[in-house]
Computed example of a mutant assay.
Amino acid sequence: MSQALFGKLPDGREVHSLSLQSGRLSAKILTLGAILQDLRMEDVDHPLVLGTPAVTDYLGPARYFGAIVGRFANRIGEGSFTLDGKTYRTDPNFRDRHTLHGGSEGIDTQIWQVQSLAPDRATLTLDLPDGHMGFPGTIWITAGIHLAGDELSFTLSARTDAPTICSLAHHGFFDLDGRGDIRNHSLMIDAGHYLPVDDDLIPTGEIRPVDGSDFDFRSPRRIGSAGYDHNFCLSDGQRPLCPVARLTGESGLSMQVETTACGLQFYDGAYMRDVPGLDGRIYGPHAGLALETQHWPDAPNRPGFPDAVLRPGQVYSETTIYRFIA
């Protein structure tokens, strides 16, 4: 267990790195965005995640890499939603029209406070004021990050003092082989439906069966080059922790994903471009993939999607476990 200065942001804010270790896993967590900056496994000669050694890259080419994103993960169409009869305009940081991952100053850009630190776990907290990025209500967020043997877990929780919307997600990029191309990884996703999107990657509102399509990952198969940045519909609401996906590299190393969340965003990294990475790597297209457990995107504007509203007196809570199997 240790805490050290990782770097300074252009505005002078200090970012610290927290080192965790348990069993065969070791991790580095940044106070910027609660970012998982590095993850290693004994007897594996490469990082399991994509990260960067320069703190400023997390505000540029490596934006969202390994971060906790929110207060509403993924996209909100047209940067607006209506809650209890009032319309809210949120920061249009995606294509100048839509809101992505909580806006241009989402929680991935914030310095989180270290509430507690132990050799195998860290608890970080963040408070956002009412009106931040256009969202209503003060929100108090807690991220519990824990290593246990061959497992990495995130428990994300939040409370508010006024009705708001909330969806928090870990936005890690994984490469189990360390080869800089995940298209030959095998993937299984236990979902019978997914959300088609328009040209701006906003869900159309249709909940489409995966049968007979490139989105049918119910049996493990090679990822390939079809192009994925879509939400897979795991359930119509929160449910008990259970396995939902399994990723396997050509090396044979596997990662099982377990979650309580109702959605899983699978992004194959097709749009990465020349991102400076760990151990001197340069990340290009398909260098890693994201499996983001979350509420369904644009849920505040889609009455047929699972409810993403958080009200005073309620506690938002989601747990996700990444279990590595050699």
Score class of each variant (00 low, 15 high):
Y316F: 12
S157I: 00
G106L: 13
G224R: 05
G224Y: 02
Y283N: 10
S22C: 14
W112K: 04
P203Y: 05
P10Y: 14
R183G: 01
R95Y: 12
G269K: 08
V197W: 01
T164Y: 04
G227F: 00
G66M: 07
H46M: 00
A158I: 09
G134K: 14
R273Y: 10
I29L: 11
S167E: 12
S213F: 00
M133A: 15
G224A: 02
Q115T: 06
G51P: 07
F81L: 01
F65R: 04
R208A: 15
H46N: 00
L253H: 07
S19M: 09
M188Y: 08
S254H: 11
G178V: 06
D181F: 13
F154D: 08
S317F: 00
E78S: 10
P203I: 01
F232E: 02
R218D: 06
R95D: 13
P196V: 11
A143H: 03
L234Y: 06
S104Q: 13
A290P: 06
N301H: 04
L168R: 09
R302P: 02
T160R: 04
Q113W: 01
L187I: 09
Q238H: 12
T56Q: 14
A290N: 01
I182R: 07
L253C: 09
A158N: 08
L176N: 02
I207N: 06
S22G: 12
V244N: 03
G66L: 08
D11Y: 14
C233P: 09
S251T: 15
R63W: 00
R75L: 08
M272T: 00
L176R: 06
H185I: 03
T204N: 08
L201S: 08
N93G: 10
I182M: 08
V275D: 01
R159M: 13
P53H: 10
R159T: 15
L247G: 02
R183M: 02
G51E: 04
P119S: 12
F65D: 03
A67V: 06
